[in-house]
Structures are given as C-alpha cells and as structure tokens.
Design a protein around this nucleic acid. Structure first.
Lengths: 230, 230
DNA sequence: ATTTCCTTTATGTCTGGACATAATAATTAT
DNA sequence: ATAATTATTATGTCCAGACATAAAGGAAAT
C-alpha cells in the first residue's frame, strides 16, 4: 500500500467534484476529517486544498470552511516568451531590425498612461522582428529615462530593447492587455499588410516599485494566435 | 523580533535578484544554508523557493540546486470570467439572446478540430450577449452530443450555453486561443459593426478525459480589451 | 433591535525531523 | 578511453504537533 500524496488528494477531490459527490456551492469536510479519511496528515490535505483554491476550483475561508466553487473562474496561464524564443520555437530564423530611435519629451498620452511629470524625457524606439525574413512583430517602445538612465547609452542596433531591459532592469509590476485593431498606413507598411487588415495588439506596461519603466505596443500581423492549454 | 515567514524569504530573495546580489544564471545557496541565514526552518525556505520557481523566477533541479532564471519567462494569469460577470462588473446591464439552434452532423472542419468520427452529431448554437443593450459578444457554440447527451433537452432561450455547461458538465482540459480577425457580413450585423472592422476572437475547446465536449468561438467588437496585472 | 464582546472553529503557517528521489560526481570494471 | 556502478547531495515530500488568525455565531450589554 502506497502512501497518500497531496497529488492523490487533489485527484480524489477533483473526481468527487466532477461526479457531483460534492456539489457546487456546498462545503466539503474540513482538513482534519479529510486527513483522517485519506490516511495522511493535515499538512498534506492542506497543500492539496491550497493548490486547488489557487487554481480556482475551491474557495476557502477561515472558520467558514472550504466550498466548491460554483462558477470555476479558472485562470488561464499565458507564458509570455521573448520574441526571439517565440520565433525560434517554430523553427523559423529570427532577425531583428531597429527602425528608429529618438529621445524626446514624453507626449501627453504617454504621460497620462504612466503618470509621468510634464517634463519627463523618454526614449522612443521602433523595431521590427522577423521570422524567416517575413515581418512578425512591430514593436513600438517607450522607455522612461528617469527610471532607466543608462538606456541612453545602450545600443539597440543588434539586440531588441526587450531583451536588453529584461537583462538590465528589474521590474515589480506588469500590466498586459490584448486587443484587435486595424493596421494604419505605417503599420501596414512595416508588417507587409494592406491598410485596414486586422492586427493583434499586445500592450505591456511595467513598473519598478511605482516608477514606470516602459510601455510597449506590440503588433502582430495576419494569422497570429496566442494559445494556451490548461 | 518577528518570525521569518515564507513571504519574507520570497521578498528577500527577490530583492537580491533585483539588486544583482544573485546574478542571472548563477546558483544561489541551498535551502539548508538559507534556512540558517534567515533563521527559519527549511520547510519555510522550501515553500518560498517553490513558489518563486512556479512564478518562473527561479529554476530548480534536484542535486544541481537553484538557479536564477536569466530570461524570466513570467507567465501571466488571465481570469476568464463568465460573460454575464464580465458585463455586470462594468456596471452595465446584461442581456442574453438565443439567435439560432440546430442539431446537425458535425461539419468536417469541426470533426478535424475535435477529432470526431464522421457520423458525429453536434448541437450548434448562435447567441448574442449584450451590455446595456449594445451587442458585446457573439457566441458561435458547438456541443458534442455524444459526450453531453442531455444537451438536446436543455433550454437555451433564457440562459447561455456556457453557464449551462459550466454547471452541468465537468471538463478536464481546455485549449484557449486569442486572435484578431475582421468581421464578415453576418458578424458585423450581429455586433453592429461595419464589415471589415476588427474583432477580437477567443476560441475555446474543452475536453472531458479525451472526449471533446465543446468548441466555442467568441467574438468581441470594437474597443474590447483583455487585461491582466501581475 | 442593535451594538459590543467573547468563544469557537477551520484555515494559515512554522518547526524540526525523516525518508524519497533525481541528478551529478566519483569510482570501479571493461 | 569508455561504460557500468556507487556514493553524494540538493530538492521533493511527508509527518505530528504547535500556535496564529480570520470570521462566524452566540451572549451580554446598551
């Protein structure tokens, strides 16, 4: 007879939820009772339940107990890779090109988005990432010079700003958002699309303890899909 | 003097990584050493390190040790809510309408996607979800009758199939993918767009232990954004 | 009836110890 | 030199027991 692991407990609990032994919105036995039933320690049950709660299956509250979540608002985990890795993972050759680089006062829309003062200076970069020489992603990147002073000396002709930032500048918070948009003339040009074609847009803003670090708008052309399994 | 919690340990480790005390791609001290340094038990250090590894910050291997991940492939967590909750969270009134319902043999593209046999029957539904009476999401839903026989008797005139499925049918695996597309004539009509306007598309396929349950294509009109912070 | 205080209870976390396991490093046999 | 075997080591997991803490429920005071 093998020992009951926290994985076994998770599995058993999941099965009971699926076969409606434990119905949605009802409380399940407490940890001590389950530990006794499964023949393991409370710590083991606790870990199993904690992870299931993390996954959105269960809802736990002190004293109240553990309830089966009626609407399992399951959270999908998206792995956000580097462009280089994303391209190379498909077997395609990755190439990077810097389109433009300039230092300028932060435009109003960016000041609003990052809550910057009105005399903030930013580095603005436009970059293109290719997969097998076909444009794959257009990167519109803004970096807050006040938070990252050394960015003015950095060389972005061979390596993209994202890779540089990841290796040089830590961050504590990220906001990420996805949307569908149409390509304007400039974007269509860069991504080899016709104006008006749909583009998949990912916008990422990062902070280092309340100090805005960077804002990036990443545009992907035809056929791009962001996929996850869980 | 307070006790050192696993949260304290996580915080300290993160700080040391950020200030480059522990550089990327280098090994950090083992759990016993850290427990001694922090004045806590190894279990506490273990939990902190395990969670940081889960978050993609660290890379752990038995015997080898714990290494600082050079390219923190941080994974974003997306909470996928019910349409109803998503709409009501903005303060808008939610309304649902069933557009069409028919039982038919699975079309070839669906058979391929769900690996269905060639005489599979499916229930096909078209639904509209409104926010304050403005179309918010168009749902193109296909349900595998073989896996969910009782779906033929279900009434979808008042409640959307997603809510019904969530409460009635368990699932074990989900594939989710996002993309940008253009509205065709039918979709433009339903979402009150002009044909050719961009739509944000989410496609979700779910299985119950290798048995395909359902495939849904959810289309969102103008201005829809899917956002997460971490 | 409403507020305030106290008790109870289930989860949250820590400890210190133990054994399991994977992977590396060292050793021995071919 | 190369392959097979054996130690070593850091992480992975488990346990039993302890105390902390949030929150529900009831009791007492207003």
């Amino acid at each position: 007879m093998e020992k009951t692991t926290f994985r076994d407990v998770k599995q058993t609990v999941l099965t009971r939820i699926r076969d409606k032994t434990w119905a949605p919105d009802t409380f399940i036995p407490n940890e001590v009772a389950l530990a006794a039933e499964f023949g393991c320690s409370r710590s083991t049950v606790n870990r199993a339940m904690r992870e299931l709660a993390e996954e959105g299956i269960l809802d736990r509250k002190r004293k109240a107990g553990t309830r089966v979540n009626a609407t399992p608002v399951r959270n999908a985990k998206f792995v956000i890779p580097l462009v280089r890795d994303e391209v190379e993972a498909t077997g395609a050759a990755y190439r990077y090109a810097l389109v433009s680089r300039e230092v300028l006062p932060a435009p109003p829309w960016l000041r609003a988005r990052l809550s910057l003062g009105d005399k903030s200076r930013v580095l603005h970069l436009n970059c293109l990432h290719f997969a097998n020489n076909a444009p794959f992603q257009f990167e519109d990147r803004w970096i807050n010079i006040a938070t990252v002073p050394m960015v003015e000396q950095a060389d972005f002709s061979a390596r993209g700003p994202n890779e540089w930032l990841l290796s040089q500048v830590p961050f504590t918070d990220v906001e990420l958002s996805f949307s569908a948009n149409t390509a304007d003339a400039q974007l269509a040009d860069f991504l080899a699309l016709s104006p008006g074609e749909p583009v998949f847009t990912a916008e990422r803003t990062t902070w280092l303890n309340d100090n805005p670090v960077t804002f990036a708008r990443l545009s992907f052309g035809r056929g791009y899909r962001m996929t996850t399994r869980y």
